[in-house]
Computed example of a mutant assay.
Amino acid sequence: MKKLLYISLFLFTGFIQAQTALYNSGNIRIHPNGNLGFHTNLVNDTAFDQNEGLAGFYGNQVIQVSGSISPTFRDVEFLVSNNVFLQNSVSVDNNVNFVDGNILTPLNDQTIHLNFQNNGFFTGESDASKVTGFAAITNRSFFSFPVGDQNQLRPLLLDSESESPLAICAYFFENPSSPSSILESFDIEEKVRDIGTVTDREFWIIQSDVPATVTISWNSRSALGLIPNTTADAIIVVGWSKQANQWVIIGNSAQSGDISQGFVTSQTFIPSDFEAITFGTIPLPTDTFAVNNPTLGNYFLSPNGDGTNDFLVIEGMSESPNNSLRLFNRFGQKVFEKINYVDEFTGISNTGSLLLSQDIGLPEGIYYYLVTLDDLELTYQGFLFLDR
């Protein structure tokens, strides 16, 4: 929706008190090609869900949505500079257009959210316009939640193995040990010994009963560089386990970036098994090999048959015959995987949807590798440049 609609007509049903809200206790319906603008609070106490057309929230003052029954809109846009505050959930069947101002929900009540139904999507999200609270999806398997705090958009990408009947997400720029927005706390010192440090800057709440991976990012405000002796390669996804009541490793399946900014995709897990997720680091190495080899380096591969750099040879793999190598493209898609790797990779994909013709091979470019040395209990990450 590129054209904004400013609607001065107010429709009232039920009763009005000092013209401070639109009370819907009767029968309002937005018909196809119809438009309804809210310039005041909405109190919804009856079914308001067979809507077509566009509903819009406009103005310079805070608009509150409350009532006993959640409204459902087909298309909705938000242009309220002082924010829209949901005290009751709002569902959307089609498009949410974020224009200006945030959509707030109570951070201590996960049952209230902006819910994107089966085909719902959004446009225009930004630091100035997003969900500052809980966003939700219904019957979806893949979705990027447009969540953040008052100042920044901090989305979370959920990729589920199947459709989730309901998934909810919120972001908190708060210390997990002592958050100000919720009653729960997640002490960053309560962690398994395989975690070095848990960040005290931010966390996400993501709930879904379907196994999934999540992708989250860090930026300069995340300040991961302030963690002593930390590099980007040491950043891992950790979660506060409901069962163990401590931070445990969820793990990474892909990662990119430097200590200032980047992203990481988790291993598959069940989000509802965890109260919160955030960034952790692996402990400083004490193993002799790890100390002498803080990184395995970056590599150059030119499989043209000239006898130079035709195969990917990674130094140190022989130290651990029980190992694995995984390669990812710049989109985080896995393109090669080998257990007990011994110099086999020549630029040909062997896994995933990117399995290409043996005559073509993978395209030229930069790839990310993940090496696991099981015998030494070490993991290394780096980059490979493939030259055609």
Results as ranks from 00 to 15, higher is better:
Ile7Trp: 01
Ile7His: 03
Ile7Arg: 02
Ile7Ser: 07
Ile7Phe: 01
Ser8Arg: 11
Ser8Lys: 13
Ser8Gln: 11
Ser8Val: 02
Leu9Gly: 00
Leu9Lys: 08
Leu9Ala: 03
Leu9Asn: 05
Leu9Gln: 10
Leu9Ile: 05
Leu9Thr: 06
Leu9Asp: 06
Phe10Tyr: 06
Leu11Gln: 08
Leu11Trp: 02
Leu11Ile: 12
Leu11Tyr: 05
Phe12Asn: 13
Phe12Glu: 08
Phe12Gln: 15
Thr13Val: 06
Thr13His: 03
Thr13Trp: 01
Thr13Ile: 02
Thr13Lys: 06
Thr13Asn: 11
Thr13Cys: 08
Gly14His: 06
Gly14Arg: 07
Phe15Thr: 12
Phe15Gln: 08
Phe15Ala: 10
Phe15Asp: 06
Phe15Ile: 07
Phe15Lys: 11
Ile16Leu: 08
Ile16Lys: 07
Ile16Tyr: 05
Gln17Tyr: 15
Gln17Ser: 14
Gln17Met: 09
Gln17Arg: 13
Ala18Tyr: 15
Ala18Gly: 04
Ala18Ile: 09
Ala18Asp: 15
Ala18Arg: 14
Gln19Glu: 09
Gln19Cys: 04
Thr20Val: 13
Thr20Arg: 15
Thr20Cys: 07
Ala21Ile: 00
Ala21Phe: 07
Ala21Ser: 13
Ala21Tyr: 10
Ala21Trp: 02
Ala21His: 09
Leu22Lys: 06
Leu22Met: 11
Leu22Ala: 08
Leu22His: 04
Tyr23Lys: 11
Tyr23Gln: 14
Tyr23Arg: 12
Tyr23Leu: 13
Asn24Asp: 10
Asn24Trp: 01
Asn24Gln: 12
Asn24Pro: 01
Asn24Ala: 08
Ser25Asn: 14
Ser25Arg: 11
Ser25Glu: 13
Ser25Val: 08
Ser25Gly: 13
Ser25Asp: 12
Gly26Gln: 04
Gly26Leu: 02
Gly26Met: 01
Gly26Tyr: 00
Asn27Cys: 06
Asn27Val: 05
Asn27Tyr: 15
Asn27Thr: 11
Asn27Glu: 11
Asn27Asp: 14
Asn27Ile: 03
Asn27His: 15
Ile28Ala: 14
Ile28Gly: 08
Arg29Met: 09
Arg29Pro: 00
Arg29Tyr: 03
Arg29Leu: 05
Arg29Val: 06
Arg29Glu: 07
Arg29Asn: 09
Ile30Trp: 02
Ile30Val: 09
Ile30Leu: 04
Ile30Ala: 02
His31Val: 10
His31Ser: 09
His31Gln: 13
Pro32Gly: 00
Pro32Arg: 05
Pro32Ile: 00
Pro32Thr: 03
Asn33Val: 01
Asn33Lys: 07
Asn33Met: 03
Asn33His: 04
Asn33Thr: 04
Asn33Gly: 00
Asn33Cys: 00
Asn33Glu: 07
Asn33Trp: 01
Asn33Ile: 00
Gly34Arg: 12
Gly34Ala: 14
Gly34Asp: 12
Gly34Ser: 10
Gly34Gln: 12
Asn35Ser: 14
Asn35Lys: 14
Asn35Pro: 00
Leu36Glu: 01
Leu36Lys: 04
Leu36Tyr: 08
Leu36Gln: 05
Leu36Cys: 07
